[in-house]
Design a protein around this nucleic acid. Structure first.
Lengths: 344, 344
DNA sequence: GAAAATACCGTTAGCGATAACATATCGGAC
DNA sequence: GTCCGATATGTTATCGCTAACGGTATTTTC
């Protein structure tokens, strides 16, 4: 057993330590560690061995400053508990996997001010690109995005003006088409149940589109109910109970998301309400969860995974070529009729 | 209207630009922007105005290199779709809110190799601390953690050797106590249903503890069923159907998480199985979702939010004082009996 | 066999900020 | 009037790394 030198009281290691340990210049060590430039096989091995033995971890801060390149992509989303966004993130991560780029997530809690702060924080790390949910930002945030000089992709929603690129679906159209499908199935006394948050623009646009769809048939919402906070499944149950108590002759409930829709569905099943005969139901998002319910809720796919992947691809491509210039990708969600709308 | 100079073809701004625009040195600008040191009110205003007009965003890369301080906390977790981890994250974020520290999340997908890679990546940004799920790491990862010279907090689990600090619950004990509660309620023919993932050490420990609890009464698991991937709610339903078909005389099902438990519960309700009379059920985690079910599933709180908060507090405290030294926080989860275990 | 190309590795000069120290200015104490 | 201490600002020297360019050997080309 050789008594190898006991790890020093440890000042953090630098390239110089590795360079001294392997007898080459710092530059050569840097080249080896980045697989860049010509290095002979023998020195490469020597350097790698030294780095490993010392337990050297490169300092990206210094590297990024020197090279003016940062392998981070800022991803700014409203929430992590929404189910939707983790899926978008998965799409982003997968697409970025092989590019050397790495997503860094910031959460805004649906607050425009918080979004502005988070964006400022993230831009100060000089990322290679920004993926940000929604098209609505404070004036300052928008200015920052415009001036950042890096590719920006706004995701989820295409109804509005984009700063640069945009990938998403039209929530307005999603609401509109759901309304048409519902009307076509013969329902007439229709209510909307959703979140109270004024900053959830996509839910708002779905509702607006939905109302426009009803208007085409000369109809309007019979009733509506909003909630905020708490367990969505429970809220769905409670809201459904409340709205049916208030307006017993409703024949359709359109929920702004699948979780509250599932809560409503469970409530109806439990109460023995005839779904979809006497009452039809629909949600939005096509979440996994629905697969586990005894009856399939009608819903609409929001293309979450693909949105993430496409957005990431744009950043990766642009940051490679250095180009900046808007791309617009509108995906088209499709209705999953499930078992909670009468079949035509 | 004064025709203000149109924004230049734009090279990214530096302190120097602000300094020139406001007629003071870069150092003074730096002081203003960080609220540090003495600056007269008049110049402070002048500098802030200039920075705002130009749209200057500080470069933290350069700042961090110069000051040798990075306001990031690396948070490494296995998954984002697990429901549990977003909640832990929320606890972390809230606690870090006022400290100037910022969490950066890395996801490992329950792969030790990926964990090693992610850790290496994150350490190369020289964060102020690391919060990492679990006590099981590759040898290399453990070495990195030990040598990082920053506070490390391993979370979720306390059954094992910690590198530095640890905050969590004993999953072994959680399983054990659930077994005791179930036995006390009179159940005897008991099965376990859970995930197949060999790298979900906490689920494994719960099962081991559970078996140890049964062993105290001279019992063993009658049957078990594992799954991987897919919608947890649906899997719970399918597994429950399968295991009851195979072992019809079971009188209790212990699920390794609430989502599959909820799936099982819905299945039982639908089939008209007498719960908790003929069949008892229990899950783990006390997720929000359960609030929305018609019957409350028995479960155990995993203290997710508090784990996050306590871990973050340790990092914040330590990184302030510069101290490094293990703290051990074992939280004690409590059983929520719900409606799916017979009352003593 | 000289010129040109290649392979390999070192030197120098920043990247954009901050720490630490130095300097200037202004009152008031004595 | 001098000196001291506070307040307000500037100077200098890094931080750890990489771009860009410069040297040697060693090969290749014709």
């Amino acid at each position: 057993m050789n008594k190898s030198s006991p790890p020093e009281p440890r000042r953090t290691l630098t390239l110089r330590d590795v360079s001294e340990a392997s007898g080459v210049s710092e530059m050569t060590v840097s080249r080896v560690l980045r697989n860049r430039g010509d290095v002979s096989e023998s020195t490469r091995e020597r350097v790698l061995a030294a780095a490993k033995k010392l337990g050297y971890v490169p300092n990206k801060i210094a590297g990024a400053l020197a090279s003016q390149r940062v392998n981070l992509v800022a991803v700014i989303i409203p929430s992590l508990s929404n189910l939707v966004f983790p899926e978008v993130l998965t799409g982003i991560s997968q697409e970025l996997e092989e590019t050397g780029l790495q997503p860094v997530v910031g959460v805004t809690n649906y607050s425009p001010e918080r979004e502005e702060t988070v964006l400022y924080e993230m831009l100060s790390w000089r990322p290679s690109g920004v993926i940000i949910a929604g098209l609505e930002h404070t004036a300052a945030a928008r200015a920052m995005l415009e001036n950042a000089g890096i590719p920006i992709v706004e995701i989820m929603d295409v109804d509005g003006d984009a700063v640069d690129s945009v990938v998403g679906i039209s929530h307005r159209r999603a609401g509109l088409e759901m309304a048409r499908a519902i009307l076509k199935a013969g329902y007439r006394r229709i209510a909307f149940l959703g979140t109270k948050m004024p900053d959830d623009h996509r839910a708002r646009k779905r509702m607006e589109g939905f109302e426009a769809g009803l208007a085409e048939a000369g109809l309007a919402l019979e009733d509506r109910e909003f909630y905020s906070g708490g367990s969505a499944l429970l809220k769905g149950r409670e809201m459904t109970e409340a709205i049916l108590a208030r307006s017993p002759d409703l024949d359709f409930l359109y929920y702004s998301n699948d979780m509250i829709g599932a809560g409503g569905l469970l409530y109806c099943l439990e109460k023995g309400i005839d779904v979809p005969g006497r009452l039809g139901l629909a949600g939005f998002n096509n979440v996994d969860l629905l697969d586990g319910l005894p009856v399939r809720l009608a819903t609409m796919d929001a293309c979450r995974h693909e949105i993430g992947a496409r957005a990431a691809a744009i950043i990766a491509g642009r940051s490679e070529t250095g180009l900046i210039g808007g791309e617009r990708v509108e995906l088209t969600p499709t209705i999953q009729p499930g078992d909670t709308i009468r079949r035509g």
